[in-house]
Simulated assay, not measured.
Amino acid sequence: MTDIKTAANPLFLREEELRQGIEMLFFAYRDFTAEPDRILAEYDYGRAHHRVIYFVGRNPGLAVSELLEILQITKQSLSRVLGQLVREGFVQQKAGTQDRRRRHLHLTPRGYELERRLTETQAGRFARAYRAAGAEAVEGFRTVMLGLINERDRARFEGRGGERPGVRAPRGD
Rank of each mutant, 00 (worst) to 15 (best):
F55T: 03
P36F: 03
F55V: 02
R58T: 10
V52D: 07
E35W: 12
D31G: 10
I53A: 03
V52Y: 11
A48S: 06
P36A: 05
E66F: 08
R47N: 07
G57M: 08
H50Q: 14
P36M: 04
A48P: 03
G57V: 03
A63H: 04
G57P: 03
F55Y: 15
I39W: 02
V56R: 02
Y43D: 05
L62T: 10
R58V: 08
F32I: 09
E42Y: 07
Y45G: 00
E35Q: 13
R38M: 12
G57F: 09
L62I: 15
Y45M: 01
E35Y: 14
L40D: 01
D44H: 09
D31C: 04
A48D: 12
V52W: 05
A63T: 12
I39R: 01
G46T: 07
G46E: 08
G57N: 09
R51Q: 14
L40F: 08
E66K: 07
I53L: 12
E35R: 14
N59S: 03
D37G: 13
V52C: 10
T33H: 09
E35F: 13
F32C: 05
F32S: 06
G57Q: 08
L62N: 02
G46P: 04
S65I: 11
N59Y: 02
H50T: 04
D44M: 05
H49R: 02
N59A: 05
Y45S: 00
E66T: 12
L40Q: 04
F32P: 00
N59F: 03
R47H: 06
F55K: 04
G61E: 01
H50A: 09
P60F: 15
E35V: 15
E35P: 10
A48L: 13
D44N: 12
E35I: 15
F55Q: 06
F32N: 11
E66G: 10
I53N: 01
E35M: 15
G46Y: 04
Y54K: 08
A34I: 06
T33Y: 13
R51S: 15
A63F: 09
I53R: 01
V64H: 11
R38W: 07
Y45T: 00
L62P: 00
Y45E: 00
G61H: 02
A34H: 02
S65Y: 15
A34E: 03
S65C: 11
V64Y: 05
A48M: 12
A63K: 08
D37I: 14
Y54L: 09
H49V: 04
V64R: 08
S65D: 15
G46V: 04
I39L: 13
P60R: 09
H50N: 14
F55A: 01
G46W: 10
S65W: 11
R38Q: 13
Y45P: 00
L40G: 01
V56C: 05
L62K: 03
D37M: 15
P60K: 13
A41M: 07
D44E: 12
Y54D: 03
T33E: 11
A63R: 08
V56N: 02
L40H: 07
V64C: 10
A48C: 07
S65V: 13
H49A: 14
G46R: 00
L62H: 01
Y54I: 05
E35A: 15
T33W: 09
D31Q: 09
Y43A: 04
D37K: 11
V52F: 07
D31Y: 06
Y43V: 01
E35N: 08
R38P: 09
F55M: 07
Y43H: 14
D37S: 15
